[in-house]
Design a binder for these strands. Sequence first.
DNA 1: AAGGAGAATGTAAACGTTTTCATTACCCTC
DNA 2: GAGGGTAATGAAAACGTTTACATTCTCCTT
Lengths: 344, 344
Amino acid sequence: MSRLPSVTIRDVAREAGVSLATVSRALNSGAQVTVDTRDRVRAVAERLGYVPHEGARSLITRRTGTLGVLLPDLYGEFFSELIRGIDQTAQRHGYHMVLASSHSDAREIAAAVGNMRGRVDGFVVMSPDVAALPALASLASTFPTVVLGAGPELGAFATISVANYEGAVTMARHLLDLGYKRIAFIRGPTGNVDATDRLRGLRAVVKGAAGVALRECAGDFRQETGYTATQKLIHGKDRPDAIFCANDAMAVGCIGALHEAGLRVPDDIAVVGFDDIPIARFLTPPLTTVRVPIAELGTSATERLIDALRGGVPLAAHREVVPTSLVLRASCGANRREPIRRPV
Amino acid sequence: MSRLPSVTIRDVAREAGVSLATVSRALNSGAQVTVDTRDRVRAVAERLGYVPHEGARSLITRRTGTLGVLLPDLYGEFFSELIRGIDQTAQRHGYHMVLASSHSDAREIAAAVGNMRGRVDGFVVMSPDVAALPALASLASTFPTVVLGAGPELGAFATISVANYEGAVTMARHLLDLGYKRIAFIRGPTGNVDATDRLRGLRAVVKGAAGVALRECAGDFRQETGYTATQKLIHGKDRPDAIFCANDAMAVGCIGALHEAGLRVPDDIAVVGFDDIPIARFLTPPLTTVRVPIAELGTSATERLIDALRGGVPLAAHREVVPTSLVLRASCGANRREPIRRPV
DNA sequence: AAGGAGAATGTAAACGTTTTCATTACCCTC
DNA sequence: GAGGGTAATGAAAACGTTTACATTCTCCTT
């Protein structure tokens, strides 16, 4: 078994001819120590390749300087954006981040949390499955935790979520305004609260509109299912004139399938998504979608957590809902009258 | 300051009416303890919400059960795939993963490593900038480290890299076979060894071909620069007939820019990339690229590291080069004679 | 010149585990 | 029923830090 580095503070002390306490002070604060001593000790530490044992340190300081991040998944641009926001913020405040993914059901969440508990000061958790809510509640009530993406169900804790419902309503109205009558919705994973809220928003709008048909089909937020779902949609009868994908990743697959089938977007079928992942604007055609400030989501959550840890105050029950906005590009056909491809 | 949970093994021992040693045994191995005692102790621990302090534990076991992962960046699908591979493998072996990104130059690497050293058993590092090589060498010589993506420069250590040169050669030959004469290459970040090797492969092939012009322009592996670089390319004179992007992310931006300019891919200009990120097959047209097994890269690196940690043997100097393969799709025009878009 | 304030340094306890070694309890064999 | 072997348990040391408290030293004030 490979060992942690074996040169200890004691070695540094001996070599520098001072006591343990002095080494500790010289290396950490630098206060209460002559500049001379400080520099000498630091030089010795450097020369010996001394690395403090963080475990020993956390034993006495009672903090680890580490945040636990639990994500359901690691597929696609959404999560790299999210992680980027978390990582940047954590680093900026001098915290480390231990990351674990693939946690959907309550049991897995509980297991992951149990493993991490003793080694982090707090958690940022995203677990959009309703089934996991009890586990999250139990975690958040005993440990500093910010929950990403859970809604009012966890009202007693600190949560940051996205205005999914409102975003979907806006997008749905936009589609109706453009005159689409046969709208298909490719759903997210079953039980996923974000996906569910988006669907609810769409349903609410369609219900109030005359002569508009809504057709729903299964999906799981991944490109692949956007692709296969679309293939089914276009081969059935009553081909939709617009496809609303529960997220952008599926819109990518959707557009891929349409092009492959020789259908033009948006002329034959309009496509819209949700999230505004970075790639959305580079698609062909550029994707009309609902913007979610993904990285900022990670940033906010991390900042809120660190604030609480620093202040020593428990995380207040605080529900933050970040707003979304409609991003109009070409895939919805809003600018349909302009030629999609101009000849050179 | 928020504290680590305060119920200790001592509380459990008292409550269960046994000694510390017995609690430790009951909770860990379960060996050397009556089934009765074991269950009783576990029940008490559960009831009290006992969570072992991992720092204290690592103090005596001399291992943290954690791997440090250092990445240059967190943009795009490449890194989410890579992290996924690492995360899965680490979890499978019961290791945790602490992740830090945004480390390019030697100074930043050294700082990040210094911060992490005392809290991990080993490192997986990807730092494709040549400037960082000395820092990596120094790390790898004193700490269990697997380097991702560095080439023969770090021959003395454990490295896993991609057959960039060979992949680029294959792709270049393919472009020449298709008859392209004015090839543009959108480079990766300056100093990036992967990007450099890919360019070298292309140059080697072009040099040997008569009547083929190669034009290079700057890029940094991100979608955005693929987009802007392409805009410049198509507005100058001598418009290229094929664009080779140093990675797929830039190909995304490139295709976006071409479509926006009303140019058809591949009819007017062919586009190819490198990496085969998941989105590549869903682009319009689907992207011809060089396949890199990204997640497997992470898996291999992690497995090698864990093997060494488990075995207690130092990481052997071992240079693994994972092969690449050409993935033919529509964007290169290989199937140009087929209609790109069939009418419905 | 003596006394005292304050800064620099040292001593030792404490943090929460695991593990070696010693002890006890138990069961089996004769 | 005694002896011996084995399994279960306990006592205590050790891991590498930080920090409260004690001590020494320096220098200023009177």
